[in-house]
Design a protein around this nucleic acid. Structure first.
Lengths: 233, 233
DNA sequence: CGCGCAATTGAGTTATATCAAATACGGTGG
DNA sequence: CCACCGTATTTGATATAACTCAATTGCGCG
């Protein structure tokens, strides 16, 4: 469990410019000259569900681009229980705070099977000097993260338990490209919403009875967005 | 009520470089040449308590540096009630999202008597091209805002009502340069913590009975940080 | 088939929201 | 300076929602 496989070590990032999801990632607007400036390896890494990408307090000279799957950022409280403060999916950056040399503020843990690119801080910093486009891309990530954090408070940490679960499902559904989406464990729901595992379970169970939520395969589900939205948002 | 006074219109920002709190603000590391590049007015504005600096949805070509006082950023929920998602104090930036041309995501409302500098987006954007120091300063603001948002979730939106109030008081105390700090209304406490006004009131009243909290003048208070921390954090 | 973990369900307890009333406070005008 | 008014705060009683604890069910995997 929680093994890490390094698939490809791209010495010099020769294949970054052919990346299938390059339009989504930090390097979207880089040109050939920019890629030539990358002199440190960008590694392509896969994680199985439940792996820890990095740990709160780690001093790591990397940021991670999520290529596929879902990653949770969670903080531990002094009493030991954890609160999930953000979800990352395709195109998002994990470990932004590492860019300015600060230690990681969260545990980053995969919920799915996850593929990431591990980008050395030095690559970002050296590119920043020469490529204004990277600045814009970075600023957009900051902005998206911050606006997501605000939403997390307003939508997921406000109202009663059923409302919160409903809004979480709607959020997961919105962010999914598919017509179904990843359904977290009840424990993770609780840690995201600031409610207990049992309360999360009771809410999802009721939604299923109402036919507003239909579990499909393992960890995947579909929701009737119209009905859920009308009831709770 | 809610009047706005423009104190000084600094055509060209001639006095920015003599700003008393320049070491705290976005322009900390700018040099003479940088200041010479500022060709749009940076206005110094004062607000009385309860004024709205900008409104959710506004498309404003400005960011605001808080020079003194306390500003709350709040979002309205569809049902009409509001949730405060962040507090800004000296040196913080309000309206960061305006930099990338997006509309304001919050109402920005003063809790105190507040002084801000209103900086046109164009000033930031043109300086960004030439001064890498500004980039670093901006990135630090993004990072601080994001880390504050995470704390907001982990510390202020988790646990029971008394814990939340205690942690809010501790946070306000930490951020205060003084040995006393600004004590929000119970309604604002509720909007920050996701609890009702009455619950916020009951918690603060009990803390006062326990002598852990001592109101001083209007809106100002002192806490026994050791005792509060031992009890609730 | 049975094991282990996650999810569900239920009963009992506690905390918080709700509603209503009383009190304190600051500001205003006489 | 004092009386009054509106607002914020405090307090209490009750209803409701969430938590806690425990037991049961469901499910995937070996």
């Amino acid at each position: 469990m929680k093994t890490i496989q390094i698939e490809n070590a791209w010495r010099g990032a020769k294949r970054c410019k052919n990346c299938a999801i390059r339009h989504l990632v930090l390097f979207a607007d880089l040109d050939q000259a920019d890629f030539d400036r990358i002199h440190h390896p960008i590694d392509d890494i896969e994680f199985e569900p439940g792996s820890r990408i990095y740990r709160q307090g780690d001093d790591m000279p990397f940021v991670y681009t999520v290529r596929s799957g879902l990653v949770k950022l969670e903080q531990s409280r002094p009493n030991g229980d954890k609160r999930i403060v953000r979800l990352l999916s395709q195109g998002d950056l994990a470990g932004l705070e590492n860019l300015s040399g600060q230690v990681a503020e969260h545990d980053a843990i995969t919920m799915d099977h996850v593929k990431v690119c591990r980008i050395p801080r030095s690559v970002i910093n050296s590119l920043q000097r020469d490529t204004p486009n990277l600045h814009n891309a970075l600023m957009q990530r900051w902005q998206k993260a911050l606006s997501g954090a605000d939403n997390w408070i307003t939508r997921l940490s406000t109202g009663n338990a059923k409302e919160r679960v409903a809004r979480l499902l709607l959020l997961l559904d919105e962010n999914s490209t598919d017509d179904c989406f990843f359904l977290p464990t009840r424990e993770d729901m609780g840690a995201m919403l600031g409610i207990t595992t049992e309360s999360a379970s009771k809410a999802t169970a009721e939604f299923r009875r109402q036919q507003w939520l239909k579990p499909l395969s393992q960890n995947r589900a579909w929701i009737d967005t119209t009905k859920l939205h009308r009831q709770f948002d």
